[in-house]
């Protein structure tokens, strides 16, 4: 660029001085440094731009809302950790109860079990079978048998004898007596 000492900066050069002064050619920069007129032109334009920024700032409102960040994740993680611990605790308790029940059963068998207890078990079996037999004859308890009038296997024979006394033997004896000539009253 041809630039003489007497030549002042044009508009483009003034703009260039504002955008990036170091981009100006050396001759122009030297002139700018020594020419109050050109320096004033640059400064004046800079001032206008600076004022524009200041007025924009002045004629705009200020923020009034406080910025709120989302809920802290650590609170959530504490909660989820607590939930995880609770679940783990519940599962552990269930397993513990199961183990204890199983252990108690095993221990009981070990203490009471064995060949010595065989006769006891047989007796219990017999009792059970007796009970099953009586139930198969009549499932109702004795008290209900009285109410319902269901025949009680124990009292049935006595009752029937009372209601309808057996005379089969008497008849037979009378016939025998007549045959033998025994006098009846």
């Amino acid at each position: 660029m041809n630039f003489t000492k007497d030549q002042h900066l044009n508009d483009d050069q003034i703009i260039c001085a504002i955008v990036e002064a170091s981009d100006l050619p050396d001759t122009v920069r030297k002139h700018l440094a020594g020419c109050p007129q050109c320096r004033m032109a640059v400064e004046q334009f800079e001032e206008e731009l600076s004022t524009l920024g200041k007025l924009a700032h002045h004629f705009s409102p200020k923020p009034e809302t406080q910025i709120t960040l989302p809920v802290e994740k650590t609170t959530q993680s504490i909660f989820s950790a607590w939930k995880w611990q609770f679940s783990f605790g519940a599962a552990f308790s269930a397993v513990l109860v199961f183990v204890m029940v199983w252990w108690a059963g095993t221990t009981n068998t070990a203490i009471n079990g064995g060949p010595n207890n065989l006769s006891g078990e047989l007796f219990e079996d017999e009792e059970l079978m007796t009970e099953i037999s009586s139930l198969s004859e009549n499932a109702l308890p004795k008290f209900y048998l009285d109410i319902t009038g269901e025949p009680d296997p124990e009292t049935e024979d006595d009752f029937m004898e009372f209601v309808n006394p057996s005379n089969e033997d008497t008849t037979l004896s009378l016939k025998n007596n007549r045959r033998k000539g025994v006098k009846l009253c």
């Binding site: 508009d11 703009i15 260039c16 504002i18 955008v19 731009l49």
Partner: peptide, 8 residues
């Protein structure tokens, strides 16, 4: 640079 030219 262009913006300043127009602004001026």
């Amino acid at each position: 640079y262009r913006a300043l030219g127009k602004f001026k």
